[in-house]
Simulated assay, not measured.
Amino acid sequence: MSAAVRETDPRRPDLRFLRDDSHIGNLLGRLVPGAFPPLLTVLTGALVVSVLLLADQGRLTGITLCAPVASLLLSGLTSGHPHDGRFDWLVPPVLRLSEYGFLAVLGLASGVPGPLVFVLLVAVVLHHRDDAARPAVGMVRPGWVRAAALGWDGRMLVVAAGGALESLTAAYGLLAAYLVALLVRESVRTWSATPVTDVRDGHNDRGGVDASST
């Protein structure tokens, strides 16, 4: 995790951490740190994505594939902002809705099998849940794992690139498989590193609790 999103209190993660920006988004934020209000800019990006999707009813067209680029250029500019405004806590949910909406509408309207769209969305939701839930118990995922998940903007760009190459279904399938494998690997690593209490202590050979023979 970069210094820009390091947490001061593990139970209260920095909103910039919950944004889940890619390296590209973080780079844009460093170019103009604090220059734009996060919530207004992110809402504008979400509106642009919605308009571009509605323009062709969510189907795969050149206009639709521009949505991730437009969202990245707008929302990425605010990734370096301290997010200390009264309503800036709404920024991560707005980014989530933009990503989920883009993946769902584009996939379903362009003929990607529904189950495949569902699997990809579940994988992305679990990724976000992991980032939100772990700080509550004083943990965060390794920085390289979060970076490997590509960020909200990176995942949208991967899907858009697949569409541009006329391989949208393959892009959904490969991205879903990649994210699921990453989640499983991190889950196994976490479980393996968790201490296990020896439940055999205080029990006799027959499985009962030791008791006095008198």
Rank of each mutant, 00 (worst) to 15 (best):
A55D: 15
R96L: 06
V140E: 13
Q57I: 10
V122C: 00
A109G: 07
L65G: 01
V140L: 15
P38G: 10
L40P: 03
S79A: 04
S75Q: 10
I63L: 10
R19C: 05
A104H: 01
R129C: 12
L73H: 07
L53A: 09
L47Q: 04
G143H: 00
R16M: 03
D56A: 08
T78V: 08
G45E: 01
S110L: 02
R86K: 11
A132I: 08
S75P: 12
V69Q: 01
V105A: 01
L15S: 13
W152C: 11
G138F: 07
V105P: 02
R16N: 08
R96N: 15
H127L: 14
L95C: 09
V137D: 13
A70R: 10
V5G: 00
A67H: 00
P33R: 08
P92I: 09
V124K: 12
A46C: 07
H83S: 12
M139A: 14
A123G: 00
W89I: 06
P13W: 06
P37S: 03
D14T: 12
G25A: 10
V137C: 09
V124T: 13
D130C: 12
V94W: 05
R30C: 02
L121W: 09
A4M: 08
V112K: 01
L72P: 12
D14S: 04
R6L: 08
G151W: 05
A109R: 02
V122T: 04
E7K: 15
H81P: 04
N26M: 12
T78I: 11
L120T: 00
H127S: 14
N26W: 15
R141S: 08
F118L: 11
L52K: 02
L28W: 09
D131S: 10
V105G: 00
A46E: 03
S98D: 10
R146G: 01
R96H: 14
I24G: 05
L72D: 06
P82S: 05
Q57H: 03
H23R: 13
V122M: 12
S110K: 01
R59Q: 04
D20P: 11
F17L: 14
L97W: 14
L106Y: 04
G76Q: 04
L60Y: 00
G80C: 05
P142Q: 02
V145Y: 00
S50D: 10
A132D: 14
L73Q: 11
L121Y: 08
P135R: 11
F102W: 14
L95E: 02
V94M: 09
G114W: 04
W144G: 05
R96E: 05
L47W: 09
A123Q: 00
G101W: 13
C66L: 13
L97K: 15
A109K: 04
Q57D: 05
G76V: 03
